[in-house]
Every structure is written in structure tokens, then in C-alpha cells.
Write a protein that binds this DNA or RNA. Structure first.
Lengths: 333, 333
DNA sequence: AGGTAATAAGAAAGCCTTTTCTGAAAAGAG
DNA sequence: CTCTTTTCAGAAAAGGCTTTCTTATTACCT
């Protein structure tokens, strides 16, 4: 009646060996004579035995599962990273427990706790801010953590990123070189390192080098969604901006469309640079000029780094900066 | 030195009770006097005890984890479903192991096997075709399975969908009513039920009712990516199509852009209807006319259905059809 | 051939919970 | 105040595997 499962014990009995031997065969331990190995494998095949990963996890203290905390799978930026993560994870025989956090600090902590309860071998975290609480949890558990597309100024845990400061500076410089003086900058909360520190520094540095005065009105905060594009564009116009650097592609599409819907010619009358090079940037007309981040690779490298950490291998660097460049597409001259 | 963990045994000792009692407290079993419950909870708090989910899983034969097989997280259609799945899963205290399959039959089977090895309590499958091998695995394991946005003509397992046949028929009729006779239809492999049977039937039915002859040249197969849009559009033109029904939004954007890039006026010279109502359909200019599928809900309902199956609750229906409608946006007159 | 080293495989403990079975104490009934 | 019922909590088995410790066997030397 019950989910009648075949255990290692059944295999051992049928093959006339001990459980230990079956275990060895299953785990590729070389201390097994070829003939017995064959015998065991035959029985495994015949009984269609499938080792119970939960029991293995309990006995070996390894689950071959890593937790992935993602703000929202539906966001192309993050889902692209996630794809890189999963591919490398699969390559190294790990599975991914994926959990959406909505960048909500409470959810993040809660989710992290359930992941740790599930004894994941490692965690990949995506989000913006590492709150104190989160950091505390990270260091309290001995589970390795890697940040993907996320910055921890303290560099306590591993992370894989691009140089946001420089990328933003380059973006602004592109606009300066195109003759702009009123360059706006839009991102999410400026309280976090990635936007508030790195990107903001890049923005300011570019202005300063060009001797353009910093104007608070040109710096906006906004959530990263398509639908607020209208409102953001209105604000940009009101502030007198003639161009903008945006930290999110979906938002950028919203702003672009808002401008187009108002009959503004792009890039002639208004220029836009966005940051993530998600698929979206190629899908608009004109296409969005963007910082080209190696999205898939950020995820892939983060996962690779995590595998090293989980194996306690030597790692040259816990903080990896991947290369980026700016691709001049249709929303800049 | 080692990842020094606190076990239920430590808590029991500190609180001066047995493990059984601690277990009862943790699991909310009422057979505990309030005073002892409090005592135990205090110790749990003090020691910062976190129950080991793997051990629980082994003892209780429940992992509170479900496997989700997805073609590609990076595809907005599927990631939208995934978001619905995860939200409901979280609500019911489940976690999600997410695995990308690329709709590759081998990967699907392999991934399903590792999910079952990990003793997931249930599986949600997204993809197009249920191969025989897959079906065999499904029924061999007693693990409940629900298909999301995926059809199984045999209705062996649970599934949540819309009525693809009718939706396609409606789409075609819209174009017929707009005066078209040369209506193309593009989807992935026609070998699978969802496209080859349901959608195709809808297409044919609409034509037949309007006494338009079925023309093979107008029916194309294509992978679902943006970049093949150019090629597909060329083929459509060659076949003399004046309008098209597409089964994927990314592809639809590709076709739309290809037309626009060639100076074609849309919808004046060419009309397009797409199928998924992913975010993309609102982001193009003109916006894409689309079948509005309740993406999030398909995922959410699928997960809800799965919880019922996992609890062996009575379910009225194992096959759920959600409502849809067609939204006339900018790519149709 | 006798002794040592290397190899192959078994026995059993341990991983951390849940859960069943029992028993002791408290409550209720007459 | 005794006897039955209920409540609360402990002991111990079970869950399926890994891994350490041993031992039996085979191979290798001299």
C-alpha cells in the first residue's frame, strides 16, 4: 500500500553483500572488486534502486543542494544570473532551492533561515543590501555564501560583480561627450551600497571631471518596474534633464516608451543609457544603449566560486570583478 | 572546530525534558503542558536551536520541498508561472527546487530522477511534451505531479492550463474579422499536443468556419527566441501572409521588430497576435495584441492543486482550465 | 614456505528527528 | 476515598544511508 521503497538493504540482500559494499559501489569508492561491483550494479539495475538523498544527506552531512535567494525570478536581470547559477550547479551535481525575496529584508532573513534549516551546502544571494541581521546570520552559520550581482562593502563573503562605479562613470561620460550638461541618474534606494555608494560615486566623479555641478534635482529614486516609467519620465522633464542614466532595464524601457509616446525623438531630443543589458535592451526601438554586463557569467562564476568554498579549496580571490563595456545602441547618438 | 550544531538532544538536556517533548513543542503537538512548553521554548531561544530539516525529512518521510522543472527561467512566460508557484509554495511552507530542462527530453528525465531521489513531496512540470519515458517515471513513483501551462492529452496527472484550442481559434477569428485571408500560424514543433493538436485545431477550425482554405505554407515551426524573428518574418512574407498568430511573445517581438525595421506599418500593413501576455507585450511599440493568459495564476493554481494532491485531499478536478481573453492592443486594427 | 603488506568486504555506530508504545501523574466520577 | 479516564511525558525504535573500525583474504617478498 505504502510508497514501497527499495533500500540499500534490499540491494545488499539480493546481491549477497553488505550495505557497506553497496554504498561503496554507489559512491564510486574504489575498494570494491570489479566482479562484485558488477554484481551489485546488476541488482541495482534490476530492482531499480535509487539512493535516498535525504538519508545520504543526514549520514554524510552534505545535501548537494544550494540555496538561491533572488529578488524576483520574473526580473530578467536576475533570472539571467539564475540561469548561469543553475547551469554550473548542475555541472557540479548540485541542485538549487530558489526563493523569491522581493528584496524584503524580513523575507530575506526568513528565507535564509529555512534554507539553512534544510542544510544547504551553500547560499547564493542576490539583492541590494546586506542588512546587519543578514550579515549576522551569514557569519553565524558556517555555510559559505556568495553574492551575485550584489555588493558587500565589507567583503566578508564571496561576491561576483562588475565595477559599478566605473560602469556608471563611463555611462555618464558618454552622455557628457555627447554634449549633455543636464544628466539625470535614477536608481532604487540610495541607501544601499550598490546604488547609493558605487553608482552614485561614479555619477559624481564623471560630473566633477567635466566640471559640471551636481544637481540634486536630477537624481531620482524609483522602483524598478516598467509601469513607473511614465512618472519617472515626467519627473525627469520637470527637472530639466536632457538625458538619463538608469539602473534598471525594465524601468528604462518604461521611460523610453513614455518619451516616445509623447512624441519625443530619441536619441535626438533625449538620450538614455541603461545598466543591465538584459534581453529587453535589444527588443525596443530604438534599442537601448546599455552597460553590457555578462549576466549569465556573473551567475556562473558565482556558483563556481561557491563550489570552491564548499570544498574548502584554495581560492585566489573571494571578490571577483568581471569585465563590462558600454554598447552604443539606439538611445544615444 | 567542526560546524558545531545544536541538536534536539542538547535542547532536551538543557530543558530537563526528553527529546520527544522537544519534538512535540517544535511541531506544535498539543500534548505538552504550557509550563513545559514555555521552558522548552526558552531553551530553544537561548541556544538558538534550528531543527535539522534533513533529519526531519528522513524521520517523517516528508521534505516540504517540491521540484519544479522549467524549460528556462529566463523565459518570461515560464518565470511568471514560477513566481506564482513559489508564492503559493511559500504560503504552504514548501520550498522549490528549480531545475532548467531546456525542454530537452533527456534532461527532463534526468532532472526528474534527481528530484525524486531528493524525495520531493511533489513535482510541477512545465514543458511541452510529456514523453513516454517521462510518463513512465511519473507513474512509477507515487509522487504527485502537476503540469503547469503544459498539456497531457491522457490527463493522467494534474494540470492547469487555459483552453489553447479556443484561444487560438479566437485569435485567428479576430484576424479573419479584420478581413484577412492569409493568416499564418507559427509555433514550436507541431509534434506536441499543445501546439500540434490544440492550437493547430483551433487554427484550422477558425479557418474552416470562415471557409478559408488551409494552406500549409502559412504554417511555420520555429524556436521561441527573439533572434529568429527576422528569419520568420522573411518566411511569412514569402508565403504571402498578411497577418500572423504566434505562440510565443519573444518570437512575436522579434517578428514585430523585423517588420518595423523594414518600414512596414503595423497594424496597417500587417497584423500580429501573440499568445502569452508576458510583460513584453506591453513594452513594444505598438503594443502586441495578445491572448491574455493568467500567468501567475496558472502557477499559483498548479501549486495549490499540488498541495491538495500531496495531502491526499479530495480534489474536485485534476484538470483545471483557467479563463483567458484576447486583448486588442496595437498590432491589430 | 613463512611473514608482511595491500586489498576487499563486513559489522556496527552514528547522523537527527519523528513517532509509537507505555507508564506515571492528575483529574473526574461515584 | 477508590477506581477509571485523561493528560502529559519518557524510552526506544525506526528512517536509509555513510563511515570508521575490523577482520578475512589475497598478493608480494625473500
Amino acid at each position: 500500500m505504502d510508497k514501497q521503497t527499495i533500500t540499500i538493504y534490499d540491494v545488499a540482500r539480493e546481491a549477497g553483500v553488505s550495505m557497506a559494499t553497496v554504498s561503496r559501489v554507489v559512491n564510486g569508492n574504489p575498494n570494491v572488486k570489479p566482479t562484485t561491483r558488477k554484481k551489485v550494479l546488476d541488482v541495482i539495475d534490476r530492482l531499480d534502486y535509487r539512493p535516498n538523498a535525504v538519508a545520504r544527506g543526514l549520514a554524510s552531512k552534505k545535501t548537494t543542494t544550494v540555496g538561491v535567494i533572488i529578488p524576483d525570478v520574473t526580473n530578467l536581470y536576475f533570472s539571467s544570473l539564475a540561469r548561469g547559477i543553475d547551469d554550473i550547479a548542475t555541472m557540479y551535481k548540485y541542485n538549487i532551492i530558489l526563493a523569491n525575496s522581493d528584496e524584503n529584508e524580513q523575507k530575506e532573513v526568513q528565507v535564509l533561515n529555512t534554507l539553512l534549516a534544510k542544510q544547504v551546502d551553500g547560499v547564493i544571494f542576490m539583492g541590494n543590501k546586506i542588512t546587519e541581521e543578514l550579515r549576522a546570520e551569514f557569519s553565524r552559520s558556517r555555510t559559505p555564501v556568495v553574492l551575485a550581482g550584489t555588493v558587500d562593502p565589507d567583503e566578508q563573503v564571496g561576491s561576483v560583480n562588475i565595477d559599478y562605479e566605473l560602469a556608471t562613470k563611463d555611462s555618464v561620460e558618454l552622455l557628457i561627450n555627447n554634449g549633455h550638461k543636464k544628466i539625470a541618474f535614477v536608481s532604487e534606494s540610495h541607501e544601499e551600497p550598490i546604488n547609493g555608494v558605487y553608482r552614485m560615486n561614479g555619477y559624481k566623479a564623471a560630473l566633477e571631471e567635466a566640471s559640471i555641478e551636481y544637481n540634486e534635482d536630477l537624481v531620482l529614486q524609483s522602483e524598478y518596474t516598467y509601469k513607473v516609467g511614465e512618472a519617472v519620465y515626467e519627473q525627469l522633464v520637470k527637472a530639466g534633464a536632457t538625458s538619463v542614466v538608469l539602473a534598471d532595464d525594465e524601468l528604462a524601457v518604461g521611460v523610453l516608451n513614455a518619451a516616445l509616446d509623447r512624441g519625443v525623438s530619441i536619441p535626438e531630443d533625449f538620450e538614455i543609457v541603461t545598466s543591465n543589458n538584459s534581453k529587453l535592451t535589444a527588443m525596443t526601438r530604438p534599442q537601448l544603449t546599455t552597460v553590457v554586463q555578462p549576466l549569465y557569467d556573473i551567475g556562473a562564476v558565482a556558483m563556481r566560486l561557491l563550489t570552491k568554498l564548499m570544498n574548502k579549496e584554495e581560492t585566489d580571490e573571494k571578490t571577483v570583478k568581471l569585465p563590462y563595456h558600454i554598447e552604443n545602441k539606439g538611445t544615444t547618438k
